[in-house]
Write a protein that binds this DNA or RNA. Sequence first.
DNA 1: CTAGTTTTCAAACCATCGTTTCAAACGAAC
DNA 2: GTTCGTTTGAAACGATGGTTTGAAAACTAG
Lengths: 221, 221
Amino acid sequence: MGAATKSPEKTRKAILDAAERLFADKGFEGASMRRITSDAGVNIAAANYHFGSKEALLKATLSRRIGPVNEERLRLLDEIEARCGGRRPAVEKVLEALVAPALRLSRDRRRGGPAFMKLLGRIFADPGDKLQALCLEQFGDIGRRFMPVFQRALPKLPPVELMWRIHFVIGVMAHTMADTQKLKHISRGVCDPDDTEGIVERMVAFLAAGMKASFPKGETP
Amino acid sequence: MGAATKSPEKTRKAILDAAERLFADKGFEGASMRRITSDAGVNIAAANYHFGSKEALLKATLSRRIGPVNEERLRLLDEIEARCGGRRPAVEKVLEALVAPALRLSRDRRRGGPAFMKLLGRIFADPGDKLQALCLEQFGDIGRRFMPVFQRALPKLPPVELMWRIHFVIGVMAHTMADTQKLKHISRGVCDPDDTEGIVERMVAFLAAGMKASFPKGETP
DNA sequence: CTAGTTTTCAAACCATCGTTTCAAACGAAC
DNA sequence: GTTCGTTTGAAACGATGGTTTGAAAACTAG
């Protein structure tokens, strides 16, 4: 009845690591189970034995990383609300709670690093039915938790406008997360994609200004 | 020696239309030549006969639409520079020249519509080697033309910050272009993705505020 | 009309895909 | 050591992928 305690977990991890890198590089359809298991140094049947299917493997690959990130987001948000008591929270802080944990993940090479960021950005931009549903499943709670806090931080902004702006925020996040090196190439080394804290600062400054902007139909909140 | 003048162009167009829709919906790897040609109502060999390969078909699909959009972007930018003479151009106008043509394309159902926007957003978010190169090939000129105008519109913003912010702008564009219906679903119908001019207004307002924001290291331009 | 080219078609080719099978190897419990 | 559930391995399955082939069909030119 006892399970083998060492080897199975190693193969699971090896498969997840290889899947993370290959899904990020080639996309869901572009990465093959054969290449994944080959890179992981295990038999192809082991992947289906441990995860059931390719789609389930992708799901496991995402969950392994997104879980902790989302937990830290919620923790930061709790902290913000605790500190500001009844007063209205600063948009900058809320944005940072949303943006920073994901971006910081990119520096922790032991926990996924650039590969997973690329993967996340790719999944976000994928209009495929299944990946779309997977997205909502992984981020639905975050959306429901952050939305009202944003609304309290910007009480004069109509809900429609707020939704659009959060949509824009997600676009900036996804695009910045999806690519860590292209900008360095384009800017000929001027922009450093490894300066995570610098990027967080810049994103928060940019996004906060956008969130607080006066909106087409009228008043400035 | 003479070419059949009517039918071949119809098949080419049918293939391009089907490819546009399927590449957008399923991605490059996810869309099959068989499905594309089947949807187009032509034989599968016709695609390889007219375009040579799947990759060349994608390239043709992109070129057909991007050309006119980029031309209008440059036209609008010329117009802006002509009107403001030596004075510094308004960031809002420059942003609109960059953003509006692509977004307006989505309303012209005869010229591609939502399918192509989805496709473009997808290509942008794709970290694959070939698609990345294809992207730079199609948008390199636009970047080189817009960059200095943005710099003149925001003279006090250091070039590094400007590059990052343009990077953010591209993220918002790509994400908004890539998805026309998801937001409607999430917002339970509150946000209308078909209100193109409204979206342009909102994006320009949001992005202009972000571009003009004070930056971390110091002064507000 | 005929000759010659361009375009279409059904079929086949060969590779690769995700998944399954089933027997061998393994590890812990008795 | 024997037993039993867990994990791995090589091979095969059925399906689908992009691409090619060679002949029929459609067209233009003379």
